[in-house]
């Protein structure tokens, strides 16, 4: 083993760089889903559609900014603005629908999001068409960075190397601060931990739910917006992205932001090592990680065992 590491030290270094940027992308999609799951206890299947619509909207707004000849740096705030817009426009109505079925069985809420996923999937097609959409101005603007590799150099895009992991870290730190240090944040944590007790203490659960869902939707859209400079947006992109986030949520533990971060890191690194050393395993790596984690920790990486209610 040490011999293998020494032989492949340079490759391992590259794999780590690739893994980090992939992890950042995974985290950005999964963190909103996890937040929503923590508070509403519903796995939002429409999260993938929000991701796709966020990506399309960012690309559309970005192309508009570029076509107007506005200053180039504006594309970055545009990505953010598009995400917030999608979150504000789509988040509250979806949350309302979910709240209508709050008293029913949890599976009904899950299916509300499944139905929304189907509706949004076609809506996205009607709005944005079927031709692949890319908005690569941010990518091109930042250029590449040469990473030494023995005698050789490997160019990485600055976007992939710095922007994606940077935004993921800022999001993680910002959310952690918000959840621990602000009143609303603490209310969210309280509801996540024990909804009934939080209600009994006078926390307005409805308000917390609305806030969380809107924030979660905006995060999903931000995930899509951040992907739009490199990924091609096509019909069906949401369904394929979201299934990975499901694995992250279950592996992380309910509503755990840090759990989502660690899981994303595991998945990102696991995947890139697979591509480097055993490419055929690439697709199954996230699921293998999930099964392995849950075998050891049935409540997820950072989850707390639920109290046994009698």
């Amino acid at each position: 083993m040490p011999g293998w590491i020494a032989d492949n030290a340079l490759l391992i270094g590259l794999a780590v760089l690739d893994g980090l940027s992939y992890a950042a992308a995974v985290f950005m999609v999964a963190v909103g889903l996890n937040l929503i799951f923590g508070v509403l206890r519903v796995l939002n299947i429409a999260h993938g559609s929000l991701y796709a619509i966020g990506g399309y909207s960012a690309a559309a707004l970005g192309l508009f900014v570029v076509s107007r000849g506005l200053p180039g740096w504006l594309v970055f705030p545009t990505l953010l603005a598009a995400s917030v817009l999608v979150g504000l426009v789509l988040g509250p109505p979806i949350e309302r629908l979910l709240r209508r079925t709050e008293k029913e069985e949890p599976v009904l809420q899950l299916l509300v999001t499944f139905a929304l996923f189907m509706i949004l999937e076609d809506l996205q097609k009607l709005l944005f068409g079927v031709q692949p959409v890319v908005f690569d101005a941010p990518l091109k603007m930042l250029g590449t960075v040469d990473i030494p590799f023995g005698q050789d150099v490997i160019p990485f895009t600055a976007y992939q190397l710095f922007v994606l992991p940077g935004i993921a870290l800022v999001t993680l730190a910002g959310l952690a601060w918000f959840l621990r240090r602000t009143l609303y944040g603490r209310m969210i944590v309280a509801v996540t931990t024990d909804r009934e007790a939080a209600r009994a203490m006078g926390i307005d659960a409805a308000k917390v739910t609305l806030l969380t869902f809107t924030a979660g939707a905006a995060l999903a859209a931000l995930g899509g917006a951040l992907a739009s400079p490199t990924a091609s947006l096509v019909p069906g992109v949401g369904a394929q992205t979201i299934v990975l986030s499901f694995a992250v949520v279950a592996t992380a533990g309910l509503g755990q932001i840090e759990g989502a971060a660690v899981t994303s890191l595991l998945i990102g690194l696991g995947r890139s090592f697979a591509v480097y050393f055993e490419p055929e395993l690439e697709v199954v790596v996230p699921y293998l990680i999930m099964v392995a984690v849950l075998l050891v920790r049935p409540q997820g990486l950072f989850g707390v065992p639920e109290t046994r209610r009698i």
Binding site: L97, R100, T101, E104, L108, L111, V112, F114, A115, L116, F117, M118, I119, E121, D122, L123, K125, L126
Partner: peptide
């Protein structure tokens, strides 16, 4: 073009 949307609306209607 939009069979998925119709299916989604039907499901949503049933649930609600």
């Amino acid at each position: 073009d939009a069979w998925q949307m119709i299916l989604g609306i039907v499901l949503l209607g049933v649930i609600l």
